[in-house]
């Protein structure tokens, strides 16, 4: 089952396309990181997935072919919006009660246990909790709904490093222990490296890269060698060239089995380096399926 499946998906606000021509499929059981600079269309894509926005072009289906916003989709998807909006004048206990009343399922016991574990007093008003506690409360409410897909929009942007770490740990636990699929957007790349196993890169409203992280990492290498020879490497497609003094670092589409030219060294690539390289080269793309053919430059990456 694909938790998210988009085909030619686009969203226009006024005359601006916030997202266009987006085709992708995210299989169930992944923690998917949605990466991109500000204004890349991350929030727009997430709002289309949770049914807060309607597509201007193309279509999107969730949880195996359901329309976003349909009763089944609302039932199975929990969403924590950017800046984790809560009713500031309601206590944590009231927020639990409210969410329980608005959903078919609600695991009150586990939610209370989690808040107790986090040291969040039930009687304190949501508006008087710290930023990290508010984010944790919003996440607790979302998880207590026992969703099949958890969608988080910039959940850690406002948090300090410790709160950030704790938050991500909770997300990861839910994904591993309860099999919840997770789709989260962030521009904090370091945090994603620990939790994500599926990567989507958006840039200027267009999809640039989508695929399982292991596959993407295995199909890219960094070659380090003399800067003067950087222009001559042509055996495999080059995504991005970074020059530092006498040395050049080439991010190339190559596997461990591809030959390394003499005088050059090959290194594996990390999520952050990979995502940054693609974001710096908006023309490059690594996409599966038909979306690939619409891109000018790149060749096949996944599978």
């Amino acid at each position: 089952m694909n938790v998210v499946e988009a085909s030619g998906l686009g969203k226009q606000y006024g005359s601006t396309w916030a997202l266009r021509d987006c085709s992708l499929a995210i299989p169930a059981g992944h923690v998917t990181a949605l990466v991109g600079p500000n204004g890349a269309g991350k929030t727009t894509l997430l709002q289309l997935v949770v049914g807060l926005a309607a597509p201007s072009a193309g279509g999107v289906a969730v949880l195996g072919g359901r329309w976003p916003g349909s009763p089944a989709a609302l039932d199975g998807i929990a969403f924590v919006a950017q800046e984790t909006p809560l009713y500031k004048n309601l206590s944590a206990a009231d927020m639990l009660h409210l969410t329980r009343n608005l959903n078919r399922r609600f695991d009150q016991a586990s939610a209370e246990a989690r808040l107790a574990e986090l040291g969040i007093p039930l009687q304190r008003k949501a508006g008087r909790l710290s930023g990290g506690q508010q984010a944790q409360l919003a996440l607790t409410l979302a998880l207590a709904r026992r969703p099949r897909l958890l969608v988080l929009d910039e959940p850690v942007a406002m948090l300090d490093p410790i709160a950030r770490h704790d938050f991500m740990a909770t997300v990861l636990t839910a994904a591993v222990d309860d099999g919840v699929s997770v789709l989260l957007s962030s521009h904090v790349l370091v945090e994603l490296e620990r939790v994500a196993d599926y990567l989507i890169v958006l840039s200027r409203g267009r999809l640039q890269m989508a695929g399982e992280l292991d596959d993407l990492l295995a199909s890219h290498r960094v070659l380090t060698g003399p800067a003067a020879e950087a222009g001559r490497y042509a055996e495999r497609p080059v995504v991005h060239v970074r020059r530092a003094a006498a040395q050049a670092h080439l991010l190339v589409r190559a596997t461990v089995d591809d030959p390394v030219p003499p005088g050059w060294e090959a290194h594996p690539v990390g999520l952050e380096e990979l995502a940054l390289a693609y974001l710096r080269e908006p023309g490059a793309a690594a996409l599966p399926g038909p979306a690939r053919s619409r891109q000018a430059e790149p060749s096949e990456v996944t599978r």
């Binding site: 049914g51 807060l52 609302l74 998807i77 809560l86 009713y87 608005l102 919003a138």
Partner: peptide, 8 residues
Amino acid sequence: RYAWTQGF
């Protein structure tokens, strides 16, 4: 964004 994405 909270209210409109609940199961109700």
